[in-house]
């Protein structure tokens, strides 16, 4: 007992402060981050509830038309038109890029002129011009121009020519990104011109071509909606045809919107795997 009292009465020797190097390390307090996240989440929730609660969206109508035959036909046209325009546009664009990088000054000038011209004309103006080409040339090779240039043909021609001008620059940038030494090494090994392009330059150029090309693909997918002005029944125009009869404008625009986002998401996934393919042999996956 006396020992216990003695202990409480005597002033305890102060605990030695632990040295700094022994202390536990904590990260910065990030109050600002937490507040910002909370505010954004609240705003997002408000927006979502308003979308769900607002009867004017008419989600039941959206569901009715989402897989209706005419919407699906329009979607199909949008998809194949995008595919055809991308394929033809990049084929022509690659040719233009090769012209632009060739030693031949005439080919270089032609390629430059093409890109200048078709990047200058708004796609809408171009489509209308092609649509009315019959006014300039009533007959082409003995065939009536109106028969030759139906709305779908006009859409393909106009969009392809427009696409090619941009594709040419994308491909040219990709080719320029390949080290000049790669071509020299291939030349020193006796590889033919075609083989050098196909086996050495293009696969390496693809690494810089794919990201902007993916961008263009998504841009084209949505950009095809412009053909509705010349009465081509793509996804948007199909939706418009329905709401012109039923006056359910918003739900049908929602149908088109959702389909565009679905396809865009699928394309995003596809782009990721294509990029991975062309990143072979490189440490960095950009």
């Amino acid at each position: 007992m006396s020992i216990g009292t003695a202990v409480t009465e005597a002033p305890a020797p102060p605990e030695p402060e632990p040295a700094e190097e022994a202390l536990r390390i904590l990260p910065q307090r990030r109050l600002g981050q937490w507040t910002a996240a909370a505010v954004v989440l609240v705003l997002l929730a408000l927006a979502l509830t308003s979308v769900v609660r607002n009867k004017a969206f008419q989600w039941d109508v959206v569901a009715d038309y989402f897989t209706s035959a005419s919407v699906l036909r329009g979607l199909w046209l949008t998809l194949w038109l995008t595919a055809v325009v991308m394929a033809l546009g990049f084929a022509l664009g690659t040719l233009l890029a090769v012209f632009r990088l060739s030693g031949n000054p005439v080919l270089r000038a032609v390629s430059w002129g093409y890109v200048w011209l078709f990047r200058s004309i708004p796609i809408l103006v171009q489509l209308l011009l092609w649509f009315n080409i019959g006014a300039l040339y009533p007959r082409i090779l003995g065939v009536r121009t109106v028969d030759l240039f139906g709305p779908v043909t006009v859409a393909i021609v106009g969009l392809t020519l427009h696409e090619a001008a941009y594709a040419a620059e994308v491909v040219r940038g990709g080719i320029l990104s390949v080290d000049r030494g790669q071509i020299e090494a291939a030349q020193a090994l006796g590889l033919s011109r075609l083989r050098r392009w196909r086996r050495i330059v293009l696969p390496q150029a693809m690494r810089s071509i794919v990201p902007p090309a993916g961008n263009m693909l998504i841009g084209t997918l949505k950009g095809t909606s412009i053909v509705s002005v010349i009465a081509v029944q793509d996804l948007l125009y199909s939706a418009q045809l329905i709401y012109h009869q039923t006056y359910q404008v918003i739900p049908l625009l929602m149908v088109a919107t959702i389909w565009y986002t679905v396809v865009t998401s699928v394309l995003g996934v596809a782009q990721y795997s294509v990029e991975k393919h062309y990143a072979r042999g490189s440490e960095r996956t950009r």
Binding site: G181, E184, Q187, A188, L191, Y278, R280
Partner: peptide, 22 residues
């Protein structure tokens, strides 16, 4: 010219191996 080059091996300062090929 390409045919002639196959008789002459060339080794570059910066190797210039094709990075996308094994």
């Amino acid at each position: 010219v390409l045919k002639q080059r196959t008789r002459i091996g060339f080794v570059f300062q910066n190797f210039h191996l094709f990075p996308h090929l094994t």
